[in-house]
Amino acid sequence: MDVSVFDRRETSDQLISAPLYNLIIGLTLCWGFLANWWMVTNIDPRSIAGINPWVFFLGYFASCFAGIYLFRKSDNPLVSFIGYNLVVVPFGLVINLVVAGYNPEVVAEAVRITGFVTVGMMALGTLFPAFFARIGGALTLALLLVIVVELVEIFIFKMHHGILDWIVALIFCGYIGYDWGRANAIPKTVDNAIDSAAALYIDIINLFLRILRILGRNR
């Protein structure tokens, strides 16, 4: 299939009920979060930090892009799930490195806040799908602009303004509502549920990392 996940409007796959569709999205997300939790609790962050930075980043992007390609282009649930895991693993390595620098209480609070915000944004995405559909382009432009500003600040001015973390957190809040609304606008199949969960996973993890950074700075 050449049509990306949220552009799908027709399918030859078997349709499933809305409750089952949402359950599969939830279970797929939980699988990713549990895999990340296992990685954080069982992999020494020093072993990750010891990897050559070029090797790490090349492997990270290669795995992520391969995973995204698989779940975007495939209509086979197993292939999409493999692609999802190719995204979960490198994200888990980054999460491991990041949380190692924070107090466990701060990490737990970031997890809790992220969970509440995610549920809230999904509810808003359900109630106001048309609104979130309209702001999709603005979210993408805003994120690209913030990334450019952050890179300029870090590599040229050697600084970072905390307000950027708040802006990125708000952008990913919007993305959660946006992607949740889009997930419920496409045919409800097992493959589409897994693909939608993969997109939401990326949104949620990015939100978590920014919330963690905000909380850590405030402490």
Score class of each variant (00 low, 15 high):
16 I>W: 03
111 V>T: 12
192 N>C: 05
75 D>V: 06
83 G>N: 03
112 R>F: 08
34 L>D: 05
69 Y>K: 13
57 F>A: 13
84 Y>F: 08
113 I>Y: 02
103 N>V: 07
42 N>F: 15
189 T>D: 04
213 R>M: 00
52 N>S: 12
141 L>D: 12
21 Y>D: 02
132 F>H: 01
195 D>W: 14
65 F>P: 13
27 L>W: 06
73 K>H: 14
89 V>F: 10
135 I>P: 01
49 A>F: 12
114 T>I: 07
95 I>M: 13
169 A>V: 01
186 I>M: 03
40 V>E: 09
154 I>T: 13
79 V>C: 04
157 F>E: 13
93 L>M: 08
84 Y>H: 12
194 I>R: 01
172 F>T: 00
97 L>N: 11
95 I>E: 04
119 V>W: 02
34 L>R: 10
136 G>R: 03
131 F>V: 06
79 V>K: 04
39 M>C: 11
128 F>K: 02
87 V>P: 06
63 S>L: 11
89 V>I: 13
1 M>D: 09
169 A>P: 04
1 M>W: 12
160 H>M: 13
168 V>M: 10
44 D>A: 14
72 R>K: 15
107 V>K: 04
162 G>V: 07
83 G>W: 03
76 N>A: 09
6 F>A: 01
180 W>C: 02
87 V>R: 02
47 S>M: 14
140 T>H: 06
170 L>E: 07
178 Y>R: 02
88 V>M: 01
198 A>F: 08
206 N>A: 12
155 F>V: 05
112 R>T: 12
48 I>T: 03
41 T>V: 15
130 A>F: 07
11 T>M: 04
205 I>K: 00
194 I>F: 07
71 F>E: 09
69 Y>F: 10
207 L>I: 04
173 C>P: 03
85 N>L: 05
216 G>I: 00
77 P>V: 05
144 L>C: 14
83 G>H: 01
184 N>L: 12
54 W>R: 15
142 A>N: 08
10 E>L: 14
93 L>S: 06
75 D>E: 14
152 V>P: 07
46 R>H: 13
64 C>W: 13
13 D>F: 12
88 V>W: 01
192 N>E: 06
66 A>R: 15
37 W>H: 07
123 A>T: 12
154 I>E: 11
119 V>Q: 05
44 D>T: 10
30 C>V: 14
207 L>V: 01
169 A>F: 00
149 V>S: 12
164 L>S: 08
46 R>C: 09
143 L>C: 09
172 F>A: 00
46 R>F: 15
79 V>I: 10
152 V>L: 10
90 P>G: 05
168 V>Q: 11
90 P>M: 05
119 V>R: 02
102 Y>M: 01
55 V>Q: 14
202 I>V: 15
14 Q>W: 10
175 Y>P: 06
198 A>V: 11
49 A>P: 06
94 V>A: 07
211 I>H: 00
158 K>F: 15
206 N>W: 07
47 S>A: 15
2 D>K: 15
197 A>L: 06
33 F>K: 00
39 M>Q: 11
16 I>L: 04
123 A>P: 05
17 S>T: 10
103 N>T: 08
219 R>W: 09
68 I>D: 08
136 G>E: 02
71 F>T: 02
53 P>M: 05
152 V>H: 04
60 Y>L: 03
51 I>P: 08
119 V>M: 05
53 P>Q: 06
174 G>A: 08
95 I>T: 11
55 V>Y: 15
43 I>Y: 09
176 I>T: 01
66 A>V: 14
101 G>V: 11
